[in-house]
Design a binder for these strands. Sequence first.
DNA 1: AATCGATGTCATGAA
DNA 2: GCTTCATGACATCGA
Length: 409
Amino acid sequence: MPPCPPQQGRARTTLLSAPQLSEPGQQGEMELTWQEIMSIAELQGLDVPNETPYDPALYTLMHQMAPTANYGHCPALGDGPVPSCSQPAPVYDRHYLDAMVAPCPRLGMGPVPPMDPPYGYTGMLISSSLDPGPETTALSQMGTNKTPSLSGLLSESQGEASRRAEGYGPPPPCNAQEDLESDSGLSLNYSDADSMETEGLEPSRPRPDYAEMYPVDYGPHYPLLPTLQEVPPFAMQPLEPFKPQLEKGRAPPRAELACSRDERRALAMKIPFPTEKIVNLPVDDFNELVSKYQLTEPQLALIRDIRRRGKNKVAAQNCRKRKLENIVQLEQELEQLGRERQQLLRDRCEVDKTLGLMKQKLGQLYREVFLMLRDDAGNPYSPDEFSLQLTADGGIFLVPRSKKLDSGD
DNA sequence: AATCGATGTCATGAA
DNA sequence: GCTTCATGACATCGA
């Protein structure tokens, strides 16, 4: 997305009053974010104010229905001076669950079909690495039934990354600002000009038609949050105490962040099924899933890109793993060839030594034979004038030095 | 500040 | 023609 011109921020500043934002840094991030969100609304002609997280009614409802559970509620969204927050996975999953049962009238979606049955697809490494822990969400309980058939091929860290990318891992600490700016290990920074896609720094690349539509958006899933009765027990468990990472001066490793960029895009675009399915379903099931919903063109484009990126991410991980394995194998082969070379050098040394001995013996034998030869007068032949030569058939001839046998050898 | 390794992403070609 | 996979190249982040 190209940098939002300042005028696009006006709409947001009319929605947000500055005192709501306690931290100047986060305020700046949120300004950018809301500029992008509002620009989306303008581009799509959406009725954003009715569903914006700043809808006072919804916002009030949020506090009423989940006063203690931390639903990824970002302090920067106007919740006072909370330094940081957690980004629990249940929020994400509940979002999808709710999306399954809640219509999304703004995007023209009709009533959403029920959740899909469990899938047994294990073809992708990313899916094979699933390992839902005790915190497994309702979504994973009902939606995934995967066999870790290829888990050995990927390192554990990769499996962890996959779990995180699928939103099934335990809720890692979430720094609000960091989460806004970063993603699951992705490099793009929404808040500065380095963001390739949000800032449109790659004019050579065709921008997807949803490009304006996936800025960070924590808002849209607020209206989809479950009512208190719907909150699963795991969501009501005590949360880990806040860890004010900003005060530690270090953001958590980006690999620990819960939401990937594509997941946030999916949230922002109200994609009604998880990115894990988008990426891992076989093409037939994927097409069937997509056909169940009435999705807009930008949503479909985003889904296709999420699938492509997800598959390519796994492919890249496999490719790098293969490359490393090849390097290790080649190094082992190199060592083996080095050992073989040393052995061949030793063998050659032995052979040279043996050859020298044989030449020595041959010379000695030659001299003995030559000295035994006599001419008709009984005088020995002079080695300067004659030499012994061997023919191909094994015959030995005494040949004058000036006249060699023309046998060729 | 420079460097390096890890990772995600894109472009491209092959199957 | 579409999808998937493999891989080089690039960008970014964190150590």
